[in-house]
Structures are given as structure tokens and as C-alpha cells.
């Protein structure tokens, strides 16, 4: 059984055991508009919670994607290099960015669940 958590900066992390899959939310892809480029971290890179882990660029601008938790990158979604628009069409599925090993599961506690994230979005609106 998997658990999905959200950051206030609109990343999601799906947790399966010690591994987390990270991407940006539907809200984020909609706000960015057409995505034309994604820069992914190198496998083996140690990322820290709230630190830059990837870059996503729309026609208009570049934005950083932050790591939701500390961990080591163990896989990246190579399909995004050729087809960055997958982030628009399936942000929480095919449009995932990278997978990491979760260094400190306690950090997940500070993230939002789906309900809390939805109310965070309502607060922003």
C-alpha cells in the first residue's frame, strides 16, 4: 500500500517502503503551462529536503523542483527528456521526475496529505 504526501511548494511524493517517487502536482503543471524542458538529477545524488533537485521549464519560465525529503536519487524518468509534456498530461503518473531512498521517514510527517494539500490550494486561491 502506498502513501502520497504533498509539499507547500507543489511537489508530491509517493511512498512505497523506503522508496519515494517525486513529481509536481496537477496544480503546479497547470500554473506553469506547457512544459518544454525538464532537467533531472543524476542518479546517486544526495538531495536534501527543500533543496533544489530538478528543474522544470515552461514556454515562459524556469522553475526549480525541490526534494520533499532527504534521500539518494536512485532513478529518474528518462521519458521526460524526450517528452516533457508528460508532466502536463499525467503529472501524478507518467510525469514523475525521480525516485529516491528516503533517509529519514520522520520527515514525511511534516508533509501534507491530500486533504491538507487541497485546503492549502484553497488558501492560495
Amino acid at each position: 500500500m502506498s502513501l502520497i504526501k504533498f509539499t507547500k511548494d507543489h511537489e508530491w511524493i509517493r511512498v512505497e517502503g523506503e522508496v519515494g517517487t517525486v513529481g509536481i502536482t496537477n496544480h503546479a503543471q497547470h500554473a506553469l503551462g506547457d512544459i518544454v524542458f525538464v532537467e533531472l538529477p543524476e542518479i546517486g545524488r544526495e538531495v536534501v529536503q527543500g533543496g533544489e533537485a530538478a528543474v522544470v521549464e515552461s514556454v515562459k519560465a524556469a522553475s526549480e523542483v525541490y526534494a520533499p525529503v532527504d534521500g539518494e536519487v536512485i532513478a529518474v524518468n528518462q521519458a521526460l527528456i524526450e517528452e516533457p509534456a508528460r508532466v502536463n498530461t499525467d503529472p501524478q503518473g507518467d510525469g514523475w521526475f525521480f525516485r529516491l531512498t528516503i533517509a529519514d521517514p520522520a520527515q514525511l510527517e511534516a508533509l501534507m496529505d491530500e486533504t491538507a494539500y487541497q485546503s492549502h490550494l484553497e488558501d492560495l486561491a
Binding site: 500554473a31 515562459k60 519560465a61 522553475s63 525541490y66
Partner: peptide, 8 residues
């Protein structure tokens, strides 16, 4: 994710 300028 960082904010884009148009949200300012």
C-alpha cells in the same frame, strides 16, 4: 517548486 514571476 519555485514560484513563477507572474504569480507575484
Amino acid at each position: 517548486m519555485s514560484e513563477t514571476p507572474d504569480t507575484l
